[in-house]
Each structure stands twice: as C-alpha cells, then as structure tokens.
Simulated scan of single mutants.
Amino acid sequence: MSEDHTHVQEFFGARAAAWDRKFPDDAPAFEAAVAEFGLRPGDRVLDAGCGTGRALTPLRAAVGPAGTVLGVDLTPAMLATAVRAGRARDGALLQADVARLPLRDGCLDAVFAAGLIAHLPEPAANLRELARVVRPGGRMALFHPIGRAALAARQGRELTPQDMRAEHNLGPLLAGSGWDLTSYADEEARFLALAVRRA
C-alpha cells in the first residue's frame, strides 16, 4: 500500500464512526446535488470515495430499482459505518482504490464524487481512471456540501489561485483527463461541478 493510501486510511479511519454526527445537516445538499445531476431510471452510477455512503440513498432514488448503485471507498471503517447506517441496501459497497477500479471500460453511465478530488494523489491520472469506466457521453459530478471559501475557513487556510477546484484550474484538469466541464457552481452552501465524458 502506498504512503498516500496509508495516510488516507488513517485519516478517515480515525474519523469514520463520528463522521455522520459531525456533519448532520448535509443530507439536503446531497439530495439537491443528485437531483441536479440528472440521473435517469436504470442508470449505472458509481459513488467514488463514498465514505459513509451519504449519497447512496439519493442515488438509489434517482436510478430506481432497475439501476445500479456502487459505492467504492479505500477505508474499511468508512464502509463499515455505511453498513451500520443501513446504506448498503441502497447500493453495493466495495473496498477499492478509485485510482485502479476493478471495473470494465465504459460500464457506467455516471460517477458521483463527494469531497474526493482533494484526496486524489494523482488528480489527472485518477480522473482518467474515472473516465475509463464511464461510457462516452456519461457524466460526472464533483460535489462538496459547502463551497471552497467555507471549506477553507473551516480548515483554517486561505484560498489560493492554485486551488485545484477553482474553475480556471478544474476545467483544464478535466479536459486533459477525458472530461468536458459543463457547469460549475461554487457557493457558500455547495460546490458542484458537472462534466461529460468525451467520446
């Protein structure tokens, strides 16, 4: 296991049990983001870096019983918390690295990724891996339940022009990784960037 992986597992493993209690008011933001994402009944969607599975229930509601919902996370304690919260009934949970997904090329219609991008060790390569498993014309949502400025303030840091999630950085990063940025919202109460898988 790489040093990056060990660090991520230690960070989130230590916080898994209390994660949902720490952010008790995020559910409406997840629901609104999934609604704006525009999934269709029967779609196959991956929740990449699913954590405690807070997106699984709205994702399941969006794709319906005929759809497929798969939650992937690197940290066993996060997945265990998702199971204890009853979210495994809304999607299959898999411990795996989003940098090397055990999925076929083009097998998905969409990827939803909440809070993931800041934790990618190699963002361009990792976004290319997400593109690999999504069919051409499929979609990706990069989401956070608060905006960049609010998140920076929560973490006690300054926003800089180098921030990967700034629109002027994210657009080219996605474009170089097989995605076209189609909409971008960075507000106090949410961050949501939507992209389409290039043919």
Results as ranks from 00 to 15, higher is better:
Val111Phe: 06
Gly13Phe: 10
Gly178Val: 00
Pro161Ser: 05
Val69Tyr: 14
Met164Asp: 09
Glu122Asn: 07
Ala118Gln: 04
Asp105Trp: 09
Leu116Met: 07
Ala131Arg: 04
Asp47Thr: 01
Val8Lys: 11
Ala96Tyr: 14
Leu56Trp: 03
Pro121Asp: 11
Pro65Asn: 10
Asn126Phe: 03
Pro121Trp: 13
Leu151His: 11
Thr182Cys: 12
Arg139Val: 04
Arg84His: 10
Ala18Glu: 08
Met164Lys: 10
Val72Glu: 04
Gly53Leu: 04
Arg40Asp: 05
Leu130Thr: 00
Gly171Trp: 04
Arg157Tyr: 11
Pro41Phe: 07
Gly51Ile: 01
Met164Ala: 12
Ile146Leu: 13
Thr182His: 10
Leu79Asp: 11
Phe112Gln: 04
Ala17Glu: 11
Val133Arg: 11
Ala166Cys: 09
Met1Pro: 14
Glu31Gln: 05
Ala153Glu: 09
Gly86Trp: 09
Pro65Tyr: 02
Asp4Ile: 11
Gly156Pro: 00
Lys22Pro: 00
Val111Ser: 08
Met140Gln: 03
Thr160Phe: 06
Pro28Phe: 14
Asp4Phe: 13
Leu70Ser: 02
Ala124Gln: 03
Ala113Thr: 01
Ala175Trp: 13
Gly67Leu: 04
Met140Lys: 06
Ala82Thr: 10
Val83Asn: 03
Cys107Ile: 05
Arg165Gly: 05
Glu188Leu: 13
Gly178Tyr: 07
Gly171Ala: 14
Ala125Glu: 09
Asp25Ser: 15
Leu56Ala: 04
Pro76Gly: 13
Arg132Gln: 05
Asp26Phe: 08
Asp109Cys: 12
Ala33Gln: 05
Leu46Lys: 07
Gly86Val: 02
Leu151Cys: 03
Ala189Val: 09
Gly67Pro: 02
Trp179Phe: 08
Ala189Thr: 13
Leu170Tyr: 06
Ala33Phe: 07
Leu151Trp: 12
Thr81Glu: 13
Ala175Ser: 15
Leu101Val: 06
Leu120Tyr: 02
Gly64Val: 10
Ala110Trp: 08
Ala114Asp: 10
Trp19Ile: 06
Ala61Pro: 01
Leu170Phe: 09
Ala149Asn: 12
Gly171His: 05
Asp43Met: 02
Leu174Gln: 01
Gly147Trp: 11
Ala125Arg: 12
Gly13Arg: 11
Arg148Pro: 08
Gly137Asp: 11
Pro76Tyr: 14
Val133Cys: 13
Ala35Thr: 05
Leu130Gln: 00
Ala66Asp: 12
Gly171Ser: 13
Leu181Arg: 15
Gln95Lys: 15
Ala131Trp: 03
Gln9Leu: 14
Arg197Ala: 11
Asn169Ser: 02
Trp19Asp: 09
Thr81Gln: 14
Ala193Trp: 09
Ala14Cys: 07
